[in-house]
């Protein structure tokens, strides 16, 4: 199968300090990858660099997405090409309603593909169906983006947006943090329902808990800015049982 994302020898510095130190990762359509690692290992940096956030200096390596040089693309170009970032800390934007954001986002994507704007009725059907999937009350649609949402509601809203935007590659940054068990199930259910042979996921997570509900094809352990071990879903269980220290120790010998 073709490669969707290929990260080769990626080195990234933040404020003069190298956080990623030569990271390699290959993601094919349909795959679910979990990136795990201790705090400060560079997990969120990877998510941010892939989505195009400011303040990260790429000092080496390359990232190819659908054959394009991802690092040369503006954040909105990446989004329009099917990349989605689920934020660890979703931003509150009072005055911009959820539906407004989603319609703008969908239409930006469609116009980039040379398609016409989505019709109002079709859009409404889509968002309502997705809101039901995420067990979100329809009143959320008219509210300001994440405005006054609880931590769990914000994360649910991220997955809801993802479900509407139907990305090709979704990067979910610590989506499980701050979720109670019910919210975790809803979020996982949302992700699982979007699994598709044409769509890939990168789940960045500190804990194994999320992977009880979303079974990854690959688990990568990130430490010191590189992937030091890759396995299947059982690696996550091993991490849960033994902690990161053993694996880190094993890798350094």
């Amino acid at each position: 199968m073709s490669t969707l994302l290929e990260v080769s020898g990626l080195r990234v510095a933040v404020g003069g300090k190298e956080i990623l130190t030569g990271l390699d990762l290959v993601v094919r359509p349909g795959e679910v990858h979990a990136i795990m690692g201790p705090n400060g290992s560079g997990k969120s940096t990877l998510a941010h660099v892939l989505s195009g956030r400011d303040g990260y200096v790429v000092t080496g390596g390359s990232v190819s997405y659908q054959g394009l040089d991802l690092l040369a693309m503006a954040p909105e170009e990446r989004a329009r090409a099917g990349l989605f970032l689920g934020f660890q800390y979703p931003v509150e934007i009072p005055g911009v309603s959820n539906v407004y954001l989603l319609r703008s986002a969908l239409n930006a994507r469609r116009s980039a593909r040379g398609e016409s704007e989505i019709d109002a009725a079709g859009f409404l059907r889509l968002v309502k169906a997705r809101a039901r999937l995420m067990q979100m009350d329809e009143s959320f649609l008219q509210r300001g983006v994440n405005e006054g949402f609880s931590g769990g509601e914000k994360k649910r809203n991220e997955i809801f947006q993802m479900a509407v935007l139907e990305p090709v590659l979704a990067i979910l940054d610590e989506t499980d943090s701050g979720l109670d068990i019910d919210a975790l199930k809803i979020v996982s259910n949302g992700v699982n329902s979007l699994r598709d042979p044409a769509r890939a996921f990168i789940l960045v997570t500190h804990y194994q808990r999320l992977l009880d509900y979303i079974r990854p094809d690959f688990v990568h352990v990130l430490a010191g800015g590189r992937i030091i071990r890759t396995g299947d879903h059982t690696l996550a269980l091993e991490l849960e049982a033994d902690g990161y220290e053993q694996i880190l120790a094993a890798a350094s010998t």
Partner: peptide, 17 residues
């Protein structure tokens, strides 16, 4: 950045905010 990450270009994002 949040708006850009959803596909809005920078000038539109500024306008929206």
């Amino acid at each position: 950045f949040y708006l850009q990450s959803r596909g809005l270009d920078l000038s539109t994002a500024r306008q929206v905010l």
